[in-house]
Amino acid sequence: MNRRLATVAASLLLLAATVATAGPASAAPASAGELAAVDDFGPVSVRGGGSTVLTAAFQGFEGDPVQISVDARAATNTDPRSTTGHFHVRHVHTDGRLVADFEGDITCLAGGGREAIATGVITKGEAPWFPGTELAGTKVALSVEDNGRHGDRMGWVWGVFGQPISDCQGTVPFIRTTGGDFSVRG
């Protein structure tokens, strides 16, 4: 069991390192319109849910279905204290056994264009796949890319595996949803 946890943690660390060191291929200078959009710090929200099937990158969990739902809103992108909302995550192994099921409160929300990052704290849940793992009080980061009714993307980082997570810090939405729909405004 410890080996499986280590494999998952190593996969997440590798993913985080890859995301952290990857830079943009080429960035064109921002136009005046794009700069105005960046300065728009009005209300932001992310609502909806998505499901996916884990890929081979998640060794030992390939083929597992994962569902994530988020309902969060903030008065502005610049004041995380205005954030309210809730999240729920469910991960089941291909053999039907529960890997983890947890939910919590959103503590920070930042969005821009079609993407949003929501961080939160788990308030209750269980992770029978990882006996002895305490979930309550652990931070999570959820990221969403809204691509219309089909083809959204999502990503996540769990503090459960020792990842340091700060408010409104997350990863790129790295896996395409196979069902559901997210709506990002902001």
Rank of each mutant, 00 (worst) to 15 (best):
P80Y: 12
F130A: 08
A118P: 13
G104M: 01
G159E: 06
L5W: 14
I106P: 02
G104E: 03
V19E: 10
G50R: 14
I175L: 12
T133W: 00
M1L: 02
K139A: 11
G42M: 09
S69W: 01
S11F: 15
E145D: 05
D146N: 09
P173W: 02
V140K: 09
T84A: 13
A20I: 01
A127H: 06
P164R: 12
G120V: 13
R73S: 13
T52N: 03
R3M: 09
A56F: 03
P173E: 05
A100G: 00
R3V: 15
V44C: 11
L54M: 12
S183M: 11
T94A: 10
R114A: 09
A28Y: 06
P24G: 08
F58R: 13
S11P: 04
E34R: 01
Q163A: 07
E115W: 01
L12M: 06
G120D: 05
E103I: 04
T76Q: 03
R90H: 04
A141Q: 11
F58W: 11
V140C: 11
E145I: 03
D167M: 15
G23R: 15
A75G: 15
R90A: 14
T7L: 06
P164Q: 14
A20P: 05
D95Q: 13
G112V: 01
S82Y: 01
V70T: 07
T84N: 09
T138I: 02
A56D: 12
D71V: 10
V53R: 07
G186M: 03
L54F: 15
S69L: 01
D71F: 15
S31C: 02
F182A: 09
Q163C: 11
I165R: 15
F58E: 08
F130T: 03
A22M: 04
F41G: 08
V8W: 07
V99S: 02
A32I: 05
R153S: 14
V92Y: 07
A72H: 14
L35S: 01
V66C: 04
